[in-house]
Design a binder for these strands. Structure first.
Lengths: 369, 369
DNA sequence: AAAATATATGAAACCGATCTCAGAGAATGC
DNA sequence: GCATTCTCTGAGATCGGTTTCATATATTTT
């Protein structure tokens, strides 16, 4: 009767297989110099006892934890209303599972000293690398992470750190696509409801909107830009404000709403005002659903590849970690290469922009003549 | 010039402070027998060098990792549409941060062997305990976790494991409250759109619905129960099906929709059918927002304390871990207590049900005479 | 056939903490 | 005033792996 609950150690496995613990370790790490016969015997014993090596012991000696940290520095309010994070997590998790990495979630919460929280995590040597969910512009967190020396990939570029590794959705281009399409339908009074403008996503989408208008030589009207906060309410408020301005000026014929909850709020407001979509006002929302799936409200929308973003971030980080590990083990061998044959460890930062997609729905129409 | 990037070890700190590493360890672990003067000196050196002990080394010797695992066994489809998990995570994270636990996220994903995934995590000795997001009924995962011997708290009770620790929202009661309220408004043809019935939440809400009808002696009609899947589409489909049946039978005057996305779908369908809410049909949704906040659609709803659920689960688990740790260290001392003075380690399972709340909105009205 | 190299294994050092044990000095008891 | 207890500290064992080094055997080269 085996004690199934208590974990065996390499020593015990070694004894059971009649080899030394060094050999068991070699088998575990797929070291080449192990005879086939011994390898099989050891693997059998390992399987029989469902042995899994103690991660702490392994981490101690290798100084690698096989874990990556996922930092979510936002004010948490964004977490619930939006499907962004669940989808993003899913993408990251997919890669972690496939590549056998553990995923440690680090989210701020009220009442804890964020600096202390991050210091503990950064310096505990428990994480090999970090994925940073978009920190607000100017957030000192990025500085901390850079200083920690841990490899990391950020979501979104940071103006103050041009050389930082990042992946992002091309938000400017996404907003631009929305405007392009509306212009192609004949719209010229195009309003925009933006995310908070102290976030990169807010800044980028507004920039794309402005750029597109400029390219099409459409006059810009500051009263048609409303800074939202991702909430349904702020979408509602935006439309109401446009309507108020419309007393002196005409109502926009199209609105780009850069957030799914906000788009719902906008729709509700238009409905409340007795305006029909798309007959009176065209509406383009943003969401995180697969571009193949239908929008629940049949809305024309910009579909952001959020799961792909998570996957990409994780894949880039894992690649980076592998390269770092390889470099370290080469360095340890003390190899000096002849000529300049030294394998180039590229220091070029990883910087990838993923394209969003325009998905047509029933909320847009050509402007009335 | 200090090397700020590389971490110091206890040995180095000890040397710098002019003490042994044992003393440094004592300071770190707040062991009582350290003189004030030495403690201060050591703390100063620690602070000066921003020293954080290596977690792997610590874990190795204490066989405690200070990390808990959050298992999310659902088919991932539920993750994006619903605000459930983000809110739940938030609750868990809050407690983890406060209690200095790391949080490791374990989510299944396509293409990985789930059994292998969980075995690796369960036996890697990297987690002190586990919070299990509701596994479907009959999922072998629960069995695996039980066998692993790790302390854990499940979300939701499991019929096959009556002695398992769990916390949950009282889903039956929640559905019952919704029906009670509708009955009090005079409704007798009350339909229900349920979550998938192979989940505990689906089963419980349906049970509550039935129980309430029975208590009020309202005749039940199976055609008024529709099994949804949490999606907006399934809420739409549900109403359409009720409408179809209504050719031979009358339309329900009230619908309880046990999911927020489904409730939106139902609302859209009613709108499409030209039925007004609440004049023609009353609607009660379920959501995860704070009971104090307004529903974005002004809907009468059952507000589930999901963040509180996460907090409660984490707090119970942390409490459990502390008790286990205390028991272990007492056992190691080999203390035998006189009489029956031995501190009782209660083996009663932790089982907590949190109450949902009914939040009144504009989607319910008294039945038309 | 001897030398050189490749393959296969074990003994022992090592990673960086905690914790036991023993001992020294201070405080308390009788 | 001496025994006893309490307070404080350091030496060294220990956790469970990986990795270096030495050694033995098998294979290839010359």
């Amino acid at each position: 009767m085996k004690d199934e609950t208590r974990n065996k150690t390499v020593n015990q496995i070694a004894e059971l297989a009649g080899v030394s613990r060094a050999t068991v370790s070699r088998v575990l790490n797929e070291h080449p110099y192990v005879s086939d016969e011994v390898r099989k015997r050891v693997l059998r014993v390992i399987a029989e006892h469902n042995f899994h090596p103690n991660q702490a012991a392994r981490a101690l000696v290798t100084s690698r934890s096989e874990a990556i940290g996922l930092f979510v520095p936002q004010q948490l309010s964004r977490l619930f209303s939006d499907s962004y994070f669940p989808l993003f997590f899913q993408g990251v998790v997919e890669v972690c599972n496939r590549e056998n990495y553990y995923l440690t979630l680090v989210i701020e919460s009220d009442g804890v000293d964020r600096k202390q929280l991050y210091q503990r995590v950064l310096k505990g040597q428990r994480l090999d690398g970090i994925i940073m969910g978009s920190p607000p512009i100017g957030d000192p967190l990025l500085q901390m992470v850079v200083q920690s020396g841990l490899p990391f990939v950020s979501i979104g570029q940071h103006p103050d750190f041009p050389a930082v590794n990042f992946v992002d959705v091309d938000n400017a281009k996404a907003a631009q696509m929305a405007v392009d399409y509306l212009v192609s339908l004949g719209h010229t009074r195009i309003a925009m409801v933006t995310p908070p403008l102290d976030t990169r996503v807010g800044e980028a989408r507004l920039r794309g909107y402005r750029l597109a208008l400029q390219q099409h030589q459409v006059a810009q009207d500051e009263r048609l830009v409303f800074e939202g906060d991702f909430s349904e309410q702020s979408g509602y408020a935006a439309v109401m404000q446009f309507a108020q301005h419309a007393v002196t000026q005409s109502m926009p014929t199209a609105i780009v709403v850069a957030g799914d909850m906000m788009a719902q709020g906008a729709q509700r407001a238009l409905h409340a005002l007795g305006l029909r979509v798309p007959e009176d006002v065209s509406l383009i929302g943003f969401d995180n659903l697969e571009s193949s799936s239908l929008s629940p409200f049949g809305m024309t929308r910009i579909s952001q590849p959020v799961a792909a973003l998570g996957r990409e971030a994780a894949m880039q980080l894992v690649g980076l970690l592998r390269r770092v590990a390889a470099r370290d083990s080469i360095a340890k061998l003390g190899i000096t290469f002849p000529f300049d044959a030294e394998p180039e460890v590229s220091n070029a930062p990883i910087q990838r922009l993923l394209d969003a997609q325009l998905v047509l729905g029933r909320s847009t129409a050509a402007v009335k003549p």
